[in-house]
């Protein structure tokens, strides 16, 4: 499963980066989103996989029953998911504004700071 997920991460990163290298701004946003999925999965997989045991401690105990999934990568990813939502929203607003002002989607047309 680790190998399979590693390949999935590779594909997500590759597709995300490919989209980020396009001239179209909307593709940039989609690439960004794919890339963050890839990054989240990367942390998740690199932290070690445990099937079906969330890091929760039963009532009255002080330790979760082993084996349990590593909580630290999960905390990192949870933060990353919400942050990447904020980033995506900001990117889309930026594209929205840029298209509104310049009337083009082509990054190569945005060569001057004046319009």
């Amino acid at each position: 499963m680790e190998i399979l997920l590693a390949i999935v991460v590779g594909c997500l990163v590759a597709t995300g980066l490919y989209m980020m290298m396009r001239r179209s701004m909307l593709k940039l946003a989609i690439g960004l989103s794919l890339l963050s999925h890839g990054a989240n999965l990367l942390i998740f997989t690199a932290g070690g996989l445990t099937r079906g045991q969330p890091p929760l401690i039963p009532q009255g105990e002080t330790l979760p029953p082993a084996p349990y999934a590593d909580p630290l990568p999960q905390a990192l990813i949870l933060t990353a998911i919400v942050i990447s939502f904020g980033l995506l929203a900001f990117t889309i607003a930026l594209i929205y504004r840029a298209c509104h002002v310049t009337g083009t989607d082509d990054l190569d047309q945005l060569t001057t700071t004046e319009t």
């Binding site: 680790e2 190998i3 590693a6 390949i7 590779g10 590759a14 597709t15 290298m21 990367l42 690199a46």
Partner: peptide, 17 residues
């Protein structure tokens, strides 16, 4: 270019785990 970086990432996980 993107594929090669993707492959690097795959290898990275396999090495890191």
């Amino acid at each position: 270019l993107a594929s090669s970086v993707g492959i690097v990432m795959t290898l990275l996980i396999l090495l890191a785990t």
